[in-house]
Design a protein around this nucleic acid. Structure first.
Length: 345
DNA sequence: CGGCTTTGACCTGCGC
DNA sequence: GCGCAGGTCAAAGCCG
């Protein structure tokens, strides 16, 4: 899980779960509420159902149910959005083919001849390695893509060239610790930084990345802190990966490496759920960003994103039996701690 | 030693 | 043509 999540008040997984005002008089754990295979010792305390506990259970059930319904609605909306996006993409493709029938296939790896380069650059030679089938696991929102195998992401000026032959462009807003100066956005891919530049409209430097997982992968990424909110990293992706996502182990390890808690724990179910959630979250962000015209309302978008992240997290976690188990363990432990019987021991 | 980051220089396109 | 700004290159240095 992203380290920042824990630091967000709005996202903090408050384990009190409403027990705050009465936990002192009840030592009854809520173990009965879930029955996964689990980590919880089911009989470490005698189960005596208290009406309050039952009430809480009912409430939790109700919330879970509601979350589930919301999740379904969200998926529906996402599906519809994707379908519309596809239609839009088709239309723009068709329009481009009409007006600029040849504009899409002019690349062919021709790099500006005047570029100062060492002659042997391997990247230019474009390894004949067979490009894997485009198996794209993210960047769903797309516009016209250059149809030649080669991406047309060479020197695309935002105002000029981008209209006709724009590579796939998407933006992501990622919360980051302001004290963390590394412009690293973890998205499951491996990136190699090839440049950094301070731009005019933003005092924070912009970092340029290429996909380093596959040398021929055309995707580029620009990362810059938001001028409005320095805690938000704006990652702009150009192009599409022409390979699958690298094995998850690496980014995971990277995350652990980046974070302070570097202890290599085996991935636990809640963590996996959070990872899945993260991906879902990213996807949702892209959808939202598509709605936010050209990112001019970045701050508002990031706020929205945070709120939705919190909601989704709650939903995903409450749907995850392992998380429930962990929750129950935590609650039980806490209750046990506070239980009067403990004092006797 | 290979891969990655840093960073100054260079290239290119746009606006005046 | 010139200046500016964004984007990229590649040598040097760092790190595991």
């Amino acid at each position: 899980m992203d380290p920042w999540i824990g630091s967000q008040p709005s996202l903090s997984l408050d384990l009190h779960v409403g027990l705050g005002h009465h936990h002192r008089h009840q030592a009854q754990p809520v173990v009965a509420l879930v029955k996964p295979k689990i980590l919880v010792e089911e009989n470490f305390l005698p189960l005596k159902k208290d009406p309050e506990v039952a009430g809480l259970e009912a409430e939790l059930q109700r919330v879970s149910e509601e979350n589930r319904r919301l999740g379904e609605m969200l998926r529906e909306v996402a599906a519809k959005y994707e379908s519309l996006q596809g239609q839009y993409s088709d239309m723009t493709n068709a329009a481009n083919n009409y007006s600029h029938p040849s504009s899409a296939s002019t690349e062919g790896g021709s790099v500006s001849p005047s570029r100062k380069r060492k002659s042997s650059d391997s990247l230019d030679g474009h390894t004949p390695s067979p490009p894997p089938p485009p198996q794209l696991s993210f960047v769903p929102e797309q516009q016209a893509e250059c149809t030649s195998g080669e991406p047309c992401n060479k020197r695309v000026r935002p105002a000029a060239a981008s209209e006709e032959c724009k590579p796939v462009v998407s933006k992501r807003y990622v919360h980051a610790d302001p004290s963390d100066l590394s412009l690293v956005v973890k998205d499951g891919y491996q990136w190699r930084k090839y440049g950094q530049k301070v731009t005019k409209d933003n005092p924070c430097p912009r970092a340029y990345f290429r996909c380093s997982f596959a040398p021929a992968c055309p995707v580029k990424k620009k990362v810059q802190r938001s001028a409005e909110d320095r805690t938000v990293l704006v990652a702009t992706y150009e192009g599409e990966h022409n390979h699958g996502q690298p094995p998850p182990a690496q980014p995971q390890q990277q995350q652990q490496h980046d974070g302070k808690n570097g202890a290599a724990k085996p991935p636990q179910a809640p963590v996996a759920a959070a990872a899945a959630l993260h991906q879902q979250h990213q996807q949702q962000k892209q959808e939202q960003e598509a709605a936010v015209v050209n990112g001019e309302a970045a701050a508002a978008a990031s706020e929205l994103i945070r709120r939705n992240l919190a909601e989704q997290m709650a939903m995903t976690l409450t749907m995850d039996p392992s998380f429930k188990a962990a929750l129950v363990t935590a609650l039980s432990g806490r209750i046990f701690e506070l239980s009067p019987t403990k004092d006797l021991n």
